[in-house]
Write a protein that binds this DNA or RNA. Structure first.
Length: 451
DNA sequence: ACAATGGTCC
DNA sequence: ACTCGGACCATTGTA
């Protein structure tokens, strides 16, 4: 049933007759698959998940895809001109500093210049040579001006080609709305994915990135209402681990990164610096991913010993977390799979691998999948509830984006207040865990400023 | 067409 | 020897 890579737009070229046959074949195939797989879903205990979540979600996603999201074409065009100009200038500057012209986009050619001609210290090796990734270039920035220029160039080139250019061309046709595909199959954890274009990795970190975000707007007379779950992964983690300190922190609505920082640095919460909090935040995320002391050390740029101390103190504070990790790995070894709160299942055959790297990877996956997958379960339920309530209450607002822990709605100005309440309530109360779910709301004309 | 590298998001 | 979970995509360079 796979179409050719360039065949997805076939309906634009063929007549209705052929399109009809083609569509019916698709439907027939889907039905045949359904009849074959229904018993399997039953046996695996997945029927309920299919019938009550994934199935009902199909029309919701289909409508999101059809409606799309509006972008400001003029704004994008201006960004394209400005970024192209700046890239051209950077390019010339780079040639001058490097002493010759080369293809800046080629990591190979760049490596030649940096490590052969300029004789800068080499870093990590790749399969084909020496790495020129952001970590390496940042380290070299203090010794030579070229690496810093490359970083600037890469940053701008990435934004221009992947986002500005791509989004412009997609928005050029039709009403300026961009129609992504939200895929239900294809992730190992149960998350959605977005493609053609991917609207789940629109920039947000850098100032230039935020300007690209600003090009995503609400149509005339509407506002964008966004709700994002506050630290849903860690909250799910608290729920699963039943760790009392973590549960207490979220129940009291404490700043959990600050609390962690206070503990591992042995200072009063009031004396936690932003740097200490940053370290604690990295650890909190690392824990969810099953990070080792080695991984933590390389992430934080500290010694393994220091990293190990952080981890020891972490497990001191959150004793339940360690037990949970051990138990979920045991479970994976026993069953050969792990599950999410709604029974979504991920096989982990490599949990018994004799290859240590593979086995440990499977162990980290055993920890991460129930967390990430349960968070995905929760927001999928929220999407169904939001969609249902919008209809029941006859609101005109519609969901247009999902970004893993965030839902964005396009809402008529007059309904913003009521819809915001609806969104907040539906997201926070869609499921009851051992800790409350908390949602931050944002109302704006575009996706840029303040988010 | 495909692998490798690098980079964006949660 | 060990380098954090999940995605998608652009570009280069080789086949």
């Amino acid at each position: 049933m796979t179409r050719g890579a360039k065949g997805d737009d076939a309906f634009c070229r063929v007549g209705l007759e052929e399109a009809k046959d083609y569509s019916c074949e698709d439907v027939y195939g889907a039905l045949a698959l359904f009849e074959q797989q229904q018993p399997q879903l039953n046996e695996l205990g997945l029927w309920k998940l299919f019938a009550e979540v994934e199935g009902p979600l199909v029309p919701v996603l289909a409508r999101m895809e059809r409606d799309g999201v509006l972008v400001d074409r003029d704004n994008l065009q201006e960004l394209f001109v400005e970024f192209s100009d700046r890239l051209l200038a950077l390019e010339q500057q780079i040639y001058q500093v490097a002493g010759k012209e080369f293809n800046i986009n080629s990591s190979q050619q760049l490596a030649d210049i940096l490590f052969e001609e300029l004789e800068l210290p080499r870093g990590r090796k790749t399969k084909t040579g020496y790495s020129t990734d952001v970590k390496v270039l940042e380290r070299l920035s203090s010794q030579h001006e070229l690496p810093a220029l490359i970083l600037q160039y890469r940053n701008l080139a990435k934004l221009t080609s992947t986002y500005v250019k791509k989004l412009s061309s997609l928005a050029a046709k039709g009403k300026g709305r961009i129609h992504s595909s939200f895929n239900q199959c294809g992730t190992a954890t149960g998350r959605l994915s977005s493609s053609k274009p991917n609207l789940q990795n629109i920039p947000i970190r850098t100032p230039e990135g935020k300007r690209i975000r600003s090009a995503f707007i609400a149509k005339e007379g509407c506002m964008l209402v966004a709700g994002d779950y506050s630290q849903i992964d860690l909250r799910v983690f608290a729920h699963y681990s039943r760790d009392q300190a973590l549960i207490d922190a979220f129940t009291a609505d404490q700043d959990v990164h600050r609390k962690t920082a206070a503990e591992i640095f042995r200072v009063a919460p009031g004396l936690v610096t932003s740097e200490m909090r940053r370290v604690a935040k990295t650890i909190n995320f690392g824990i969810v991913y099953g990070m080792s002391s080695f991984g933590l050390a390389s992430q934080l740029q500290v010694s393994r010993k220091e990293a190990q101390i952080f981890i020891d103190r972490y497990f001191d504070l959150y004793a339940g977390v360690k037990t949970f990790m051990e138990q979920i790995i045991e479970q994976a070894e026993r069953d050969g799979f792990v599950t999410t709160l709604l029974g979504r299942r991920r096989p982990l055959p490599e949990i018994h691998s004799s290859n240590r790297t593979r086995r440990e990877f499977a162990q980290r996956t055993a920890i991460n999948t129930p967390i990430q997958g349960t968070a995905a379960d929760i927001i999928k339920l929220a999407m169904l509830e939001v969609d249902r309530r919008l209809r029941v209450e006859n609101f005109k607002g519609r969901m247009i984006l999902q970004v893993h822990d965030e839902l964005v709605l396009e809402v008529p100005e007059k309904e913003v207040e009521a819809t915001s309440l609806l969104l907040n309530d539906a997201m926070e109360n869609v499921m009851t865990l051992a800790v409350p779910l908390s949602v931050n709301l944002q109302v704006s004309r575009d996706l840029g400023v303040g988010k």
